[in-house]
Amino acid sequence: MTQESTQDRPAPGALERLAAALGPESQGRRGPPPVERWNPAYCGEIPMRIAADGTWHYNGSPIGRPALVRLFASILRRDPDGRIVLVTPVERVGIEVEDAPFLAVEMAVEGEGEDRAIAFRTNVDDVVALDAEHTLRFARDRDGGFKPYLHVRHGLWALVTRALVYDLVELCETREEDGTAWFGLAAGGRFHRIMPAADLS
């Protein structure tokens, strides 16, 4: 985590100040705030961390209020430099993310093949349908297996939890594309490549 000087850090009470900056209009809003249109000055980092298991921490302690976590999750954004920030109309602050900012914890499936529809629910109650904008990507884990990630919004991804990975694998198939046999998943109008079939153990 990048160290900032004391004068670059927001003053104590950052959580309350960020929540207040959203204003009463944030209550009852449908969908996340328009953070892509907000470009306030960067105000340094705050001691907030999203752990690999999806738990949000502030000043070293878990944030125990789910509503507060959902509020801050709604104003997350990945900036062009790769930094993940909380952004309001008046300020932008950096936070630490150990893996992905969200977890995909529930999945619903309808249909088969490329016409198959798959929707996920995240740990902060976003519901995301797998499609051309909300795609899957895959990374290797330490054991040589794969970890699927779902694009949620604004360059932010949700790690698909291990229980759902097993369900995804049941839907996978091997398909030849561009002269190579790929292991992947057909859904949302496309074939999502996971790995070359030759790499399957």
Rank of each mutant, 00 (worst) to 15 (best):
Y42P: 14
R121V: 02
V97T: 08
G179R: 00
V35I: 04
P12G: 00
P24G: 02
G44S: 01
L18K: 01
W157G: 00
A139R: 15
W182I: 08
P34M: 03
C43T: 14
V97G: 05
E110H: 02
H151S: 09
R190F: 07
F102E: 03
R49Y: 06
H151K: 11
V69G: 05
I194A: 15
R121I: 02
H151P: 07
D125W: 04
D126I: 12
V105G: 04
L76F: 09
P62N: 08
L185F: 10
M1W: 09
E16V: 07
D126V: 03
L136E: 09
N59M: 12
L71V: 00
W157M: 07
L76W: 06
G184H: 07
V69F: 03
R142P: 05
S5Y: 06
T174Y: 01
A197C: 07
N123C: 01
P33A: 04
A11C: 03
P40R: 05
I63E: 06
A187V: 14
D143I: 07
A67V: 09
R175M: 13
T135P: 10
M195E: 01
M107S: 07
A117K: 06
A163Y: 14
I50V: 14
R193C: 12
T88D: 00
S61F: 11
A21F: 02
A108N: 13
Y149A: 13
G44W: 02
I118T: 04
D199C: 02
A198W: 05
A100W: 07
G188K: 05
V109Q: 10
E110I: 03
H192E: 06
W56I: 02
L136G: 00
C43I: 00
L150W: 04
D79M: 12
D53F: 11
I75H: 03
E177V: 11
R9E: 06
D131E: 00
V128A: 06
R29A: 10
L168Y: 07
T161E: 14
Y42Q: 08
L200P: 10
N59V: 09
H154A: 13
Y149N: 03
A117Y: 00
L171E: 06
P12I: 02
E4K: 10
D131T: 05
D81G: 09
A100C: 12
E36D: 15
Y58V: 00
D99G: 02
P32T: 10
D131G: 07
E25W: 05
D99E: 11
A129M: 08
Y166H: 15
F72H: 08
S74N: 06
T2C: 01
A19D: 09
G54V: 10
Y166K: 15
E91L: 04
R121G: 12
V160M: 03
M48S: 14
P47N: 09
T88V: 05
L168S: 06
A181T: 12
V35Q: 00
P47Y: 04
A187F: 10
G179K: 01
G94M: 13
R17P: 01
F120Q: 07
R77H: 08
E45F: 13
G179N: 00
